[in-house]
Design a protein around this nucleic acid. Structure first.
Length: 926
RNA sequence: GCGAGGGUAUCUAAGCCAGGCCAAAGGAGUCGGACUUAAGAUCCGAUCUCGAAGGAGUUCAUGGGUUCGAAUCCCAUCCCUCGCACCA
């Protein structure tokens, strides 16, 4: 039989599902799940596919279990990326055009429209919706919206009014990456180079020189006590500049940077580096020190002047050593100030000497500096005369003191040298003013979130620690931007609300999205939302009756049951949304649970659109079929594990679906009489129903598939073997198929929808009743008998394999009754080492002597090897091995093609017979 | 560097929390057989090593330790993934 026509089958199912998943409040209990909505700036790949298919499987499962299930979807279009994309496409940037035209397959005509950023999100949100439907996602599309819809903006304004009034939004200054050419802050996606650059906070230590200040930038202000000199580059021309009214000497680059960081800077004249060398400067904390020449000083790093601490900085140590080896400045000695275990008086000296470094151009200097730096930071302590504090604490105390008493200031600088904007200009750190912050640092707010987290279900449980860490670690978040798409900050409309910050409670908005559109946006005052979400009455609400309905719908669905997202969002979105929920909603409406996904790989490598290493979801669906894609994505790993898409594995998934399709088509309408083995099959089925249900209850889609697909298949394999040659399947098989199709319906709904009809069932399988295990159909004795038989067959096979003789007959010797007794006694014994004594107290056993002690030892070994559950069953049910084997004689004869004889081992004199044990008969092949 | 998670046979992936059910499930791949004109599909078997009796030996990143007994518990080391922010 050939496979089904998937194309036809899929379009039939899609037609049948049209609008079927629109969810409305009902008498049923609700189940509401949401997934982080996509930012539609490109085509969906199979990684996205899993993000939405896993929740769909869960949604379908609960729907079949009789819940009213809401699974909504919307599109996040706020932010700056599409603006950059549209600019690049407008400019004809080759890389961007290739990506969109060739990889994402955007038609030429549409691509032309991409000069409008909104056209991009419009195009791809349509694509997303279309592909999501093709995948069979059971979404209520009536609730779809985008985050720039005027109605949604009204909702965001309401949210932010509450955050503001609740004291969670504060104004402050903030250092950002800034492009002077574009006159804008730049995000990661705007960068040509240095996208991982971090902003470091340097302290400018102010040395005095003839009425001028010479600042040196350092990450280690506490080392001021060990400064022996400064370094300037003699080949660089420095500038004198009036900075906030004081005269500074710094490199030209530094002057420019400082001017972006809250200082007024006026350059007055130039000073060659050579003028500075051999001059003497002073600082209250280290006294007078000379300025020495050094070529390694980079004018583009910090102030362009460096303070030298040869005792603790390898660079300084070796630069000094190099000078001194030329007979210069020999009077200068390193000055130690930190003690650190594992190093002598001068850690920098130790490190340099241990590594055998010859001179300052050695490539290992960088890592050596890092090594000393870390060792001192984590284990170092300042000498008592400098306060005796650990380095990690002293660093802050000294910095604070310098700022308060000695005119120091902060300078921001990147940790990587070259940070370049897409426009080609160098990027600087700028301090932005009037910036609004969400005050995630607020201890009280943190505590509320942490308290609520305790009540939440988290899947998998391992992520709890990471959430706790994140709540603890979160600092204030700059929540407004100057550029991009989005909602204006209601009380300061010069700012846009930052995109991660406008996506924190939209799960509540879904519940009313389709109804709120009945109002024109200008009617949607904060009072309206206050009423809908908080039940707050106010006079003059528009269309109160309608609002009552909307509020009722919100209350029906909220709080959501589970939110799904990938693990990279734990440290921002998933935690942010908790902060916002606790700030706005009452206890009873707070989120109940979260499910965190793993990441996707393609052929073992990370999926990445920019590197072209993606497999588009739509291509996957058209090549393999939606069900295959679904089954692979939820079945190859549990949702929280990383998964790896490999075409060859996916192809074999398709074969499995075809096999299932063939089996059900063949057996689905059987009506024959049933026998013991049918009863056995149905008994096993109850177990699989239970296990599948448990797995899906716990979001274990892979486990569910193992139980509902492979485990049932493997039972059927044994069944077929047992009935080989017997007439057509029984009516029990029909029942099995009906259960089987339902168990798999959440995972491969297209195939199951078709087969459901084939089985002449009413309605859609998507809404059919989820199977429930019926304990009355469980027959432990039969299962045990089949287990014994299967194990015996296995034993016989393994013997046959080894001895390689052509067997003439096979004899099975089942264990005598007294061994059963021993077996039970051993099984029931607390201490298996002492049981032999108990057994020997029994006279009839005593009479058997060695035979009985041997049997006890053998039973003990056997019991250790059998699953405990099975041992319990064996002892509980006193099975009749004799009749089991006799009943199976014809089966065994067919299996092995030779006559089978069954004997009581107790009545046999055959040497082998004595090795018979309960559940492990002696086997003799002749 | 810091924080969180992980390393199981050819690949993938159970098992680990609650140590003996473990030479270690399932799936894939590979090899052999049946069917077929052939291929594919399907079905059956094998797939760490040894073995002419259902067994034995060596394995679960590496090295130690605890225990009668360790893939599972403890310690150290190495490697991988994610996050470290104003960005979706």
């Amino acid at each position: 039989m050939s496979g089904p026509d998937m194309g036809q089958l899929e379009s039939d199912a899609l037609a049948a599902w049209d609008r079927a998943f629109e969810a409305n409040p009902s008498d049923r209990q609700k189940f509401y799940i949401t997934v982080a909505y996509p930012y539609p700036s490109g085509a969906m790949h199979v990684g996205h596919g899993r993000t939405y298919i896993v929740p769909d499987v869960i949604a379908r499962f609960w729907r079949m279990r009789g819940r009213e299930v809401l699974y909504p979807m919307a599109f996040h279009v706020t932010g700056a990326p599409v603006i950059g994309i549209s600019k690049r496409i407008a400019r004809g940037d080759q890389k961007a055009v290739t990506l969109y035209r060739d990889l994402y397959k955007v038609p030429e005509q549409t691509l032309k429209e991409f000069v409008d950023p909104l056209a991009i999100v419009r195009h791809f949100s349509e694509e997303y919706a279309r592909v999501m439907k093709e995948c069979g996602l059971s979404i209520d599309w009536r609730r779809r919206f985008t985050t720039v819809d005027p109605t949604y903006s009204k909702f965001i304004e309401w949210q932010w009014k509450h955050l503001h009034e609740g004291g969670h939004v504060l104004k402050g200054a903030h250092p950002v990456r800034y492009c002077p050419q574009c006159e804008n802050p730049v995000g990661d996606h705007d960068l040509l180079e240095g996208d991982k650059a971090e902003i470091l906070k340097f302290t400018l230590v102010m040395f005095s020189w003839n009425g001028d200040l010479i600042p040196t930038a350092t990450l280690r202000p506490e080392t001021i006590y060990g400064v022996t000199n400064l370094w300037v580059n003699p080949g660089v021309t420095y500038v004198r500049a009036v900075v906030d009214g004081r005269s500074w000497i710094v490199s030209r680059e530094a002057a420019e940077k400082i001017s972006l960081q809250d200082h007024t800077v006026v350059i007055t004249d130039e000073i060659p580096g050579t003028t500075l060398t051999d001059q003497e400067v002073s600082h209250p904390l280290c006294g007078k020190v000379p300025i020495l020449p050094a070529d390694f000083v980079d004018p583009d790093m910090g102030s362009g002047v460096v303070m030298s601490v040869p005792a603790h900085a390898p660079f300084d140590y070796i630069a000094l050593r190099d000078l001194q080896s030329l007979g210069k400045y020999t009077g200068i000695r390193p000055l130690a100030l930190i003690s650190v275990p594992g190093y002598g008086e001068f850690p920098a000296k130790d490190a340099v000497e241990r590594a055998g470094i010859e001179n300052q151009s050695d490539s290992r200097m960088e890592s050596l500096t890092q090594e000393v730096y870390s060792a001192e930071f984590s284990h170092g302590k300042l000498f008592d005369k400098y306060g005796g504090e650990p380095v990690r604490i002293a660093r802050d105390t000294v910095a604070k003191r310098m700022i308060e008493e000695y005119g120091s200031t902060i300078m921001f600088e990147f940790d990587t040298r070259s940070v370049v904007c897409r426009c080609g200009s160098q990027v600087f750190v700028k301090i932005l003013h009037d910036q609004w912050f969400l005050q995630y640092s607020d201890p009280e707010w943190k505590e509320q979130v942490a308290d609520h987290l305790k009540d939440m279900a988290l899947v998998p449980p391992e992520v709890r620690a990471e959430f706790e860490r994140t709540i603890d670690w979160l600092k204030d978040w700059a929540c407004t931007r100057r550029v991009g798409l989005g909602t204006l900050l209601p009380w300061d409309p010069a700012w846009l609300i930052e995109p991660l910050s406008d996506s924190t409670i939209y799960m509540a908005y879904y519940t009313i999205a389709h109804r709120i559109r009945e109002f024109s946006p200008e009617l949607l005052t904060p009072e309206v939302f206050d009423f809908i979400f908080l039940g707050r009455e106010s006079p003059e609400l528009p269309d109160k009756a309608r609002l009552e309905e909307i509020r009722a719908e919100f209350l029906y669905w909220y709080p959501y049951n589970f939110r799904f997202s990938a693990k990279d969002l734990i440290s921002n979105h998933l935690t942010f949304q908790l902060f916002h929920h606790v700030a706005i909603f009452p206890q009873s409406l707070l989120p109940e649970g979260m499910v965190v996904f793993g990441m996707g790989l393609l052929n073992g490598a990370k999926m990445s659109s920019s590197k072209g290493n993606v497999f588009l979801l739509e291509d996957a669906v058209s090549e393999f079929g939606a069900d295959t894609v679904r089954m692979f994505l939820v079945g190859s790993a549990e949702p929280w594990q990383d998964f790896d898409w490999r075409n060859e594995l996916v192809a074999s998934t398709r074969k499995q679906i075809e096999r299932f399709w063939n089996t059900v088509s063949e057996l689905g309408n059987s009506t024959g009489e049933s026998s013991d083995i049918d009863t056995w099959l149905i008994s096993r089925l109850q177990y699989h129903i239970r296990r599948t249900t448990e797995a899906l209850d716990n979001f274990q889609t892979r486990q569910a598939l193992q139980e509902s697909f492979y485990a049932i298949e493997s039972d059927l394999k044994w069944y077929r073997r047992r009935v080989a040659g017997a007439p057509h399947g029984s009516r029990h098989l029909k029942e099995l198929c009906s259960v089987w199709v339902r168990l798999l319906a959440p995972i491969i709904p297209f195939t199951c929808e078709y087969l459901w009809k084939e089985l002449h069932k009413e309605g859609l399988v998507s809404f059919a009743e989820w199977p429930v295990a019926d304990e009355k159909l469980v027959t432990p004795d039969l299962e045990l008998a089949e287990e014994l038989l299967a194990r015996t067959v296995e034993d016989i096979e393994s013997i046959l394999k080894i001895i390689q003789i052509e067997p003439a007959s096979i004899s099975i010797y089942y264990a005598p009754g007294w061994k059963q007794e021993i077996f039970s006694m051993v099984a029931g014994a607390e201490d298996k080492n002492l049981v032999i004594r108990e057994i020997m107290k029994n006279d009839s056993m005593k009479k058997r002597g060695k035979e009985a002690t041997d049997a006890t030892r053998q039973c003990t070994t056997l019991i250790h090897r059998l699953p405990p559950q099975l041992v319990d069953q064996i002892t509980a049910s006193a099975i009749d091995e004799k009749s089991i084997f006799e009943n199976a004689c014809s089966f065994l004869q067919k299996e092995f093609g030779v006559p089978i004889k069954v004997f009581d081992a107790g009545e046999s004199v055959h040497a082998k017979a004595s090795s018979a044990l309960p559940f492990k008969p002696a086997i003799v092949i002749e």
